[in-house]
Design a protein around this nucleic acid. Structure first.
Length: 642
RNA sequence: GCGCCCGUAGCUCAGCUGGAUAGAGCGUGAGCCUCCGGAGCUCAAGGUCACAGGUUCGAAUCCUGUCGGGCGCACCA
């Protein structure tokens, strides 16, 4: 809502500046720090001062005298501070427009397809153990991005990559085949939670290797069978991966996170995706067979000489190992090519009925949606893999796909470690007050389902403490909604470049900047409107009537709330463009804080003056729309009561 | 050695492409429920924005360097 207005104003001022001073200047439109200074600020005179060699204030005065801002929403223009041109909006008209105007472009965007499809890959948990809170950060950020892009009108396909032929699965297979021999049928019959069972087994296998490194031979043997897809170990691998993936999907579904397609590494191998990429890479001279040195017998991608890879100790990256197997990067280059529709090969697809999701297969169904063929690809992967993602891009570029390389985005975020206190609670010795890194291999970490369970339990306690008596099913549902809000907001509120030292007590806190705080503000505002309606003082808010309300009725704090609500499209746009998704969470928090700070002073039900009541209802309605929209993006449910 | 990220209140973090008086939450101290829901609100205390230079009318923000801390630079992913 504010966005188009800002653009319109900037364009108009640019024309005025051009006509008056003969200078091309693209004016910035800012939000002043205090509303008393104005609703929009144009620092153009400050920027022009240098070029024109005049005082900013003087330029501002001249422009203010001559320029007339466009549209009906600007009520006043003033010169402020060092030379700002500040605009004041018509509060009633502006607020009235926000009662029914689309807050985000998504719904109205008819031409969504024209910008092309974006493939977003996230979650990507190795299917050999339970998901932990590190994986949660990935999935929550990925899902938030997907929701933002869709709200902005983009067409998005969500993929979750399943590495079902990697070392991690191999280790659990070794656990079931060698360390603690268990038949296929018995593994199939193991009770849930199967992912918890494997979590422990995986850690035991790690220790078992350490006792006798010769046992690593079993891993190699298993890995080979997994890659070939034949033999008892491959069968075991398929079973483990399938059962674990089912658990991961369930965990994510608890949080409202879903996928369009599960891509399996085993199918990339079985369909020889890499062979196609390999031929192209060799033909282009991007791969070289080493005959001597430490990489003898390997096909490597030379990275020397490129600016991006300057200063590397080893300027070559192994793509095909000397035993003929393919490294992760090699497979990923082929996969990335497929995502862009540049491989010239496709998967088979099968609908996994039990989970309600499409999965790749070797042959698959006749009828299936079209997957891949994206214009842009976003891979949500933690920052530690930046180097590998750079190599994938370099691979695309080496094949001449510069455009695709440019449109390959690595959405990097920092990892989640454990706070000293939480590490201690898990029985892990933290080193002199420093955060403790999680380790699937060592079985150190907070499992995602454990966290959600704890949050639901805490929510039930909080509800009980408020003496709310609810039927059992409603209680469970409400606790679930509160838990989702807590965990999703917790992961979304921190900037992506920051390592999260996960602290359980902090995550379990429902006060302050938390998901439940947002929910509560939303619930309260809706309760007010409900009670007003029940008292017969409600009725549909008419934008025309609201637009004609006298200016004096708008107290500054009410107006601030509306002003902040009007910025959500700009915030979401910026969040998606910069991949700093915490902006969405922060904005939701800001709105909730503003509302909480003022609603005491602005009663609706008990207000005698009809005009005041009307203005407050308008402001609160705009607020509820905006916070509701942000909560949707954040995946935070809005309970009717709590 | 090279690369990326971080350093802002006791703690956890915001601070948008340089701009107006550096802000929240937690914690601490003091208050606020005859009044639409207290998962809330108000007030107070708390800051050499790691350090040093530089650019600029103006720097927490941009540049260079230094010092701390984290993470990468595998025939693991």
């Amino acid at each position: 809502m504010l966005g188009p207005l800002k653009r319109q104003i900037a364009a108009s001022l640019a024309r005025e500046i051009h006509d008056r001073f003969g200078v091309d200047h693209d004016p910035v439109v800012e939000i002043p720090p205090r509303r008393s200074l104005g609703d929009l600020a144009l620092p153009a005179p400050l920027h022009l001062a240098r070029v024109l060699k005049r005082r900013p204030r003087e330029i501002a005065e001249e422009l203010a005298a001559a320029w007339r801002p466009p549209g009906e929403l600007v009520a006043e223009l003033r010169v402020e501070g060092a030379g700002y041109l500040n605009l004041f909006l018509d509060r009633s008209r502006f607020a009235a427009a926000l009662l029914d105007a689309p807050l985000l472009p998504g719904a109205q965007e008819e031409s969504a397809g024209e910008a092309g499809k974006i493939v977003v890959e996230h979650t990507n948990i190795n299917p050999n153990k339970a998901a932990h809170i590190g994986h949660l950060r990935n999935a929550i950020l990925g899902d938030l991005l997907v929701r933002c892009l869709r709200a902005l009108g983009r067409r998005v396909e969500v993929q979750n990559y399943i590495d079902d032929t990697g070392v991690q699965v191999a280790d659990v297979v070794v656990g079931f085949c060698d360390l603690e021999p268990t038949s296929l049928a018995d593994v199939k019959a193991l009770p849930e939670p199967f992912d918890y069972t494997c979590w422990d087994l995986y850690a035991r296998v790690g220790r078992w290797y350490e006792e006798d490194p010769a046992r690593l031979e079993l891993r190699r043997k298993t890995l080979h069978q997994l890659e070939r897809g034949e033999g008892e170990r491959a069968e075991m691998g398929r079973l483990v991966a399938q059962r674990i993936v089912a658990r991961h999907l369930r965990t994510m579904a608890r949080l409202g996170i879903g996928y369009d397609l599960l891509t399996h590494e085993s199918h990339i191998l079985a369909l020889h995706f890499f062979a196609v990429a390999y031929e192209q890479l060799v033909a282009r001279g991007a791969l070289r067979l080493e005959s001597e040195g430490k990489n003898a017998g390997c096909w490597v991608m030379p990275l020397e000489g490129t600016e991006e890879f300057a200063g590397l100790e080893d300027p070559d990256k192994v793509i095909v190992r000397s035993d003929g197997t393919i490294t992760y990067v090699g497979k990923d280059i082929a996969y990335q090519l497929w995502k862009f529709g540049l491989l010239g090969k496709d998967f088979g697809y099968r609908y996994w009925m039990d989970q309600g999701v499409w999965v790749t297969d070797v042959e698959g169904a006749e009828d299936h949606p079209s997957f891949g063929g994206a214009r842009e690809v976003v891979n949500v992967i933690d920052a530690r893999q930046s180097y590998l993602q750079k190599i994938v891009r370099a691979g695309l570029a080496a094949l001449g796909h510069d455009e695709a390389a440019r449109r390959s985005v690595h959405f990097a975020y920092e990892m989640v470690s454990l706070s000293p206190a939480t590490a201690r609670q898990l029985g892990v010795a933290s080193e002199d007050g420093k955060a403790q890194e999680m380790s699937g291999r060592k079985g150190i970490g907070v499992k995602a389902d454990d966290l959600i369970d704890r949050l639901e339990e805490k929510a039930r306690e909080e509800i009980a403490a408020r003496n709310r008596e609810l039927p059992r099913a409603e209680l469970a549902e409400l606790a679930r909604e509160i838990a989702i809000a807590a965990v999703r907001f917790f992961m979304a509120k921190t900037g992506t470049t920051r390592v999260i030292a996960f602290d359980l007590d902090e995550a379990l806190d429902f006060e302050g900047d938390s998901g439940p705080y947002l929910q509560y503000a939303l619930v309260r505002s809706r309760a007010i409107e409900r009670k007003v309606a029940a008292a017969g003082k409600g009725g549909t808010l008419d934008p025309r009537a609201a637009g004609a309300l006298p200016r004096e009725l708008w107290d500054d704090d009410l107006w601030d709330l509306v002003h902040a609500a009007a910025q959500i499209a700009d915030t979401v746009d910026k969040a998606a463009a910069t991949l700093e998704l915490s902006l969405v969470a922060r904005h939701a928090l800001e709105l909730a804080q503003r509302f909480n700070a003022l609603y005491h002073h602005h009663p609706v039900l008990h207000e005698e003056d009809a005009g005041k009541r009307h203005v407050r209802r308008v402001a609160f309605a705009v607020f509820a729309r905006a916070l509701g929209a942000l909560a949707d993006l954040l995946g935070i449910p809005a309970p009717a009561r709590m």
